[in-house]
Design a protein around this nucleic acid. Structure first.
Ligand SMILES: [Mn+2]
Length: 544
DNA sequence: GTTGGGATTG
DNA sequence: GAATGTGTGTCTCAATCCCAACTT
DNA sequence: TGACACACATTCAA
């Protein structure tokens, strides 16, 4: 159970923290906003926090029900006085419509023949007929309250969380014990943002996301214009760079679909996030600029940003060399070990049916990425949450800020090196994993999905998988945390007579994915037992 | 009435 | 049968309320 | 609120 004023306490704590920590980076508007809301009476603050946590921003006062606020009208008036709201009725027909229910609209606007229209069709009709009378009737039907200062609060949230998807509910869920975050040390001086420019670039990016969602996906000029709006100076901020580059790639991909290869190529060149260079090669081939495509492929091989890029070059090379009339380098394509299996169809998904089948040979678990990632997470838990400077800003992080950056491993290299020595001793390794499993159960960790880890699974895995296998598996994951934490096989089987085997189940029509293939090549290289199992359904008429 | 998808709440 | 592109469901925190749409 | 894995359609070359 929470305190009665939990939401007010959380809001004040977030705002005060940001006000202190970011004193030099806030605009005058933002400081005014902070002073206004923190200086307001308690009922006014309550109403403001209640409403700013909701999805809408304009409300009909009569529909609000907050028993703990004695007079909602008085609170609304106070907020209006201090510039945090308005009691003016909205002019936007769309807002007016959405604030009413369908029966209300039919009654207020005296519509009867429209009753059989769907809600969406009714909205459409009212917007398109654009009658001043409609607007007036809806405006006069209620007392209104429009929230102001939303943009300022967004900045405060952004500074506190470092992102746009966490909000005040984090406080509640953490207090309720729904979310469990590790109690890492937060460096009081460390801030998400170092400069105002950095904050503004982030805000600009989020505006671009909003614009993107409203942009006509066939409007070439609009897409190009949007691309120009994206922040350009982003070297200082790896998270923003990733997001912006992803957006460059997305827009460029859309330009490809609109048959604008040259434009797409230019946009891809602004990004180095895969699959930017892959797309560039494909576009160059489409433009019949094979020589340049070859050059880019060579660049990729000389300095790949991810395994995915190497794999792409290997698949495209035959076509490329043929176009250029070069002697094709003979590549033997990796073939994963594959078997076929016929099973009786059931209602469950194919992975579960296969798991149940293999259970006759021993213990079989549906684990996908969670087992290997999870054991690594348990093994290096304290290193992940080690107090490295500037990576923990607030109590609601499941990972340090640099977790998916290549520097993560470098920054903690000596700790990891030391920890990996424990893999020389299976008992030492196993003890550390078990200890963390018991000690930190339920706490958020970027590598650990607690839901999939059981005592039975863990004990079999730690007994059956030898330490040198764990070691090579871990090393590949750590080589690229963003890309190598996925693609592991569906099932793991621990046969009755010992050892283990990873099984990738493929239903009819499913094929091995690229990242799965890369893991399998690595398995083969390191003699780690795995198999692809293609399932066919036993002979029976399949319903149409 | 019932159902199902949201938004809201703690 | 590859290779490629694109669409979909699944995680969801859980209980409750509101609203739209469907069933008798 | 994405990231993943899978499903399904289309195209192309052997
Ligand atoms: Mn599978």
């Amino acid at each position: 159970m929470l305190e009665e004023d939990y939401y007010l306490t959380n809001f004040r704590s977030l705002v005060s923290f940001v006000g202190q920590t970011y004193d030099g980076l806030l605009t005058d508007d933002e400081k005014r906003w902070q002073n206004a809301i923190l200086g307001a009476s308690e009922p006014a603050q309550r109403l403001y926090v209640r409403l700013i946590s909701r999805k809408a921003s304009i409300f009909r006062l009569g529909k609000l029900r907050y028993p703990e606020i004695r007079s909602i009208e008085a609170a609304a008036l106070e907020l209006t006085d201090i510039g945090l709201g308005t009691t003016d009725a909205p002019d936007d027909i769309d807002v007016l419509i959405k604030a009413h229910t369908k029966p209300e609209l039919l009654k207020l606007l005296s519509l009867s023949s429209e009753q059989k229209l769907s809600r969406a069709a009714l909205d459409e009709l009212l917007i398109s007929r654009n009658e001043a009378g409609d607007i007036e009737l809806l405006q006069q039907n209620s007392d209104w309250f429009g929230l102001m200062g939303i943009a300022e609060f967004i900045v405060f949230k952004l500074c506190f969380f470092g992102n746009c998807y966490q909000d005040l509910s984090e406080f509640v869920l953490a207090d309720l014990g729904v979310f469990n975050y590790e109690r890492y040390r937060i460096d009081e001086r460390s801030r998400v943002f170092q400069s105002r420019e950095q904050i503004d670039d982030h805000l600009r990016y989020f505006e671009c996301v909003a614009t993107w969602e409203q942009t006509d996906q066939s409007d070439v000029q609009a897409l190009l214009a949007l691309n120009e709006l994206l922040p350009a100076n982003k070297q200082h901020d790896a998270h923003l760079t990733r997001r912006v580059n992803r957006m460059h790639n997305t827009i460029a991909r859309q330009l490809e679909r609109l048959d604008r290869p040259s434009d797409a190529l230019r946009l891809y060149q602004q990004s180095d996030k895969p699959p930017s260079r892959e797309r560039q090669v494909r576009v160059l081939l489409k433009l019949e600029r094979a020589a340049e495509a070859k050059q880019l492929c060579d660049t990729i091989l000389a300095e790949p940003y991810a395994d995915e890029e190497i794999q792409f070059v290997e698949t495209i090379q035959p076509k490329l060399y043929k176009l250029l009339n070069l002697p094709s380098p003979t590549k033997t394509r990796f073939r994963p070990v594959t078997t076929k299996l016929t099973l009786k169809a059931g209602n469950d998904r194919v992975e579960f049916i296969a798991r149940d089948f293999y259970s006759q040979f021993g213990e079989c678990f549906y684990v996908e990425n969670s087992l290997i990632n999870g054991v690594l997470g348990l093994f290096i838990w304290d290193i992940v949450f080690a107090p490295v400077e500037g990576v923990f800003y607030n109590p609601f992080q499941s990972a340090p800020a640099d977790f998916y950056q290549p520097e993560f491993v470098h920054t903690r290299a000596s700790m990891l090196e030391e920890r990996f020595k424990e893999l020389d001793d299976p008992l030492r390794f196993s003890a550390r994993v078990w200890e963390r499993f018991e000690h930190s159960r339920g706490i958020s960790n970027p590598l650990v999905s607690w839901h999939y880890l059981s005592d039975e699974l863990l004990s079999l895995a730690l007994i059956r998988i030898p330490v040198d296998h764990w070691c090579v598996l871990f090393r590949r994951i750590l080589a690229d945390l963003r890309n190598h934490t996925s693609g592991l096989p569906d099932l793991i089987l621990f046969p009755k007579d010992g050892a283990y085997e990873m099984l990738e189940i493929k239903g009819p029509g499913d094929v091995v994915q690229k990242n799965q293939r890369r893991w399998m090549a690595y398995f083969a290289e390191h003699r780690i037992p795995y198999r692809v199992v293609h399932i066919r359904w036993a002979n029976q008429t399949t319903p149409a």
